[in-house]
Design a protein around this nucleic acid. Sequence first.
RNA 1: GCGCGGAUGGUGGAAUUGGUAUACACGAGAGACUUAAAAUCUCUUGGCCUCACGGCCGUGCGGGUUCAAUUCCCGCUCCGCGCACCA
Length: 964
Amino acid sequence: MKRYNPVEIEKKWQEVWDKNQTYKVDFSDHTKPKYYGFSMLPGITGAGIHTGHGRTFQFSDIKVRAKRQQGYNSYSPIGWDSFGLPVENYAIKIGKKPRVAHDEALVNFKNQLKRLGYSYDWSKEISTADPRYYRWTQWIFNQLFEHGLAYQKQSPQWWCETDQTVLANEQVVDGKCWRCGNPVVKKNLKQWFFKITEYADEILEATDDLNWTEMVKTMQKNWIGKSEGAEVEFKVDGHDDIMTVFTTRVDTLFGATFVVLAPEHELVKKITTDKYRKKVEEYVLQAARKSEIERMNETREKTGVFTGGYAINPVNGEKIPIWVADYVLSGYGTGAIMAVPAHDERDYDFATKFDIPIIQVIEPELLDQENPPRPDAKDTKRNVVMCLIKHPIDDLYLTLRWNKFDWHNFVMGGIEEGEDSQKAGRREILEETGYKNLKHLKTLPLVMNSKFYAAHKEVNRNIHTTVELFQLENLDQAETKREEHEDFKTEWTKYDNLSQLKPVAELPYILQWLKDDRVIYTDEGVLINSGSFSGMETSQAREEIVAWLEQRGVGRIKTTYKMRDWLISRQRYWGAPIPIIHCPDCGAVAVPDDQLPVILPEVEDFKPKGGATSALAGATDWVNTVCPKCGKPAKRETDTMDGYACSSWYFLRYLDPFNDKQAWDPKVENHWGPVDFYNGADHAVAHLLYARFWQRFFYKLGLVSHPEPFKRMMYNAYILAPDGAKMSKSRGNTIDPLEIMDSGYGADSLRVYEMFIAPYDLEAPWDTRGVPGAYRFLNRVWTLIQDYIDSDEKTLEKSVEQEILMTAHKTIKKVTADIEDEKFNTAVSSMMEAVNSYYKLKEKGLVGKSDAWTFALESLLQLLAPFAPHITEELWQQLGHNDTIHIDHWPKWDDKYLQSDVMTIIVQVNGKLRAKIVVPKNSSEDEITKQALENDNVKVFVSDKKPAKVIYVPGRLVSIVLHD
RNA sequence: GCGCGGAUGGUGGAAUUGGUAUACACGAGAGACUUAAAAUCUCUUGGCCUCACGGCCGUGCGGGUUCAAUUCCCGCUCCGCGCACCA
């Protein structure tokens, strides 16, 4: 019997696959359905890949391999993200030129990936730094430029001092550079942008329908950050200037008691009066000096200064002060806001700090769930005061416990003509409780509308409640004159027990107020203090107030996005040159398509110089050229493109990698696009948004057949290091797949463990004993099949044959479904179960050549092939097959083998498992329940009691319910 | 702070529409084979009680719905991730 030697057979089969071009795809072959899948383009670094990356690549390999076996023409390409910061920084580190450093690192990458046995079509390998590739990246730039989607703009941008370049918003994480982790600063520079914002709405709308990991969809939606609202114009008092603000809550316009400009806002200088100029200038300067990191780490303590200017609220003509504060961002909306402190937390904090009035303009509408209004009762409307009365010393509140109703609440009463709520409160307290010496502490700054059925008066109450907090100075009581004592008793209640009061619909707000001394109502409700709009629902008011403003030309509906345009300029050498020539007469002129590629010139010193220009500026021969339009001397653009540009279309180049007439042939894309399966553990926002943007642009140009590039995007987790930390080279805790393979376990064991370790979306720590475990499993598969090969013909007993076939068919069904559902870990488990079950028969000497065994073992190999391609190919051949197992070999199951002629029924007594009974499949309900009740153990628990109920769930259980 | 996940043995993790909790693997223990070890094979392995049959408890905590809850509902605690003054 041959022994399982993974190192030997893996080498052998990798050579055979290479030679036979087993995984090579013929694009023109349309005889089979296509399947196009792969993982995110690997970025070249000095470190190579670790087992976490390996797992990521393997997910797509399994999907593609399974489809290939299922009769699809499966294409899994491979390529390299060769341009960009990681390679350049690595080159600087090892003191070699980027091209050389890249080529050397690539050797290790290729070796790793080849040894892992991924089914790539290596004949179509691409690299983004290959001029034959970036020629078309530049061509796409020209297309965008031509369509007004690439433009140059001077603006403050993120700048990384360490990497000496600007960064896109998406590449700044928590105020730090995504690459080096150092804090970034803002620099005002002239930069190239792609106008992704033009596609924001389109991309957003299409997001929900994508079959993508939900988290990624949510992140993208948040990143786009669409918010629908209105612009409102405020006249500046005594100026011709108009101050435009953006708001999503135009319904709160009557509650605006001040307006705020961002420190960078252009109006700040103009409207500041001389008296406040010094302070304002100081504040603006200070805000500019603050790094973003400082702003983020700060507590949210509001700061700001008054400008001396006033704005006029268009809706009521009120003059309200104009402030400058850094809690208003210059880059969002109009960089100016109307502040409504009653209904916005930030504005509230600011207003309380600077003593600015707060005006409530929305009243919450509350319904008492336990005592809802009754349709047959009369409706009564009242203004009411609710009195919270604190004990003079202890943390207790005076409450009323009602005799006839299940009520427990605060002292309440109507506010009468000529009374204010405080006065009414004092009167009610005296009348109902007799307490007379109280001091008023405060008023809840929120009047609430609530509706409930008042049982003691048999009417529906619709009340507007003002809540007053009093404290007793002492416990002196006057005689209470009324008979109300008969209705309730007074009671001191602890703060913690106030939540049990009823009926008090206002309770949540009251409790929050007592606890935090801060209640800001930001939800929907009904307008008050809002002129002719009072009484209107907020949603309706939003529409009507905008209409009102629009009529007068001082406002309009407006949609704003958080997403900004994509900044693509990089002041670094190692990237695709931006194909632009700056001509003194013609301006920025695109290099004509037939002159592409603009080859990245060889330079001696490629290191960043730190200025606003890249190292390319030093290549004078290259920089100095002539204008393609007028022929006059002109200079080339020296910025290179963001590496993300290169990786935003590679999935299209994969479909036509050697085309030197066009980026890809739309006819090929029409058959092979879009990508059926795509996965990765990074780039949830940046790369995936950029790729979607470009795909949509290409779609408009008629170059691709679908508006979305990736049908399925599976966002997987990375495996953690054995120490539970993130695997990283700097921590020194990475695990190199080569090391594991070289130690004798081979790629297949590693691959099986990678899939078995955890579900794809779970971060699980790497267990160094996991690969040996997977090896044991494969070794059992090997032994089992050797046993079969060495055996003679055998006639199996019927029951044994049935058992084998049932296991085989069950496993086929389970693994097929699990791969489809991307539950790779349970797919492996079920194959292990099958092998364990076959092994038991083997130990009994029951393995022998027979149809059942042949089917069981061959189908097992076919199911295992995507996970462990080498051992399965070897054993497939040993079983006498001359073709590869990896093409067109997938087993089918038949449900008829899954049925057994008996079934196990669980018997529960009072919900507890008491017995299991085995009954023939066709038993009737009566037979089964009868048998259940006759079971000895069941009898013990039923004893002499009579079952009150017997529930039978067909094929599952009998549940016997006894009375006490 | 807001949003979204999650919490199951010593460990990684399984469990259709609510219906045998802990599949599979790792680790641990015992045994077989062996001069011995490794490898391999078999058995045991949630806790407590019991000679055993079996019983009681058990899926982060506290309640609820149900004949029946890891699963559904309400309230909490802790952990992870995302967003973070976005008007």
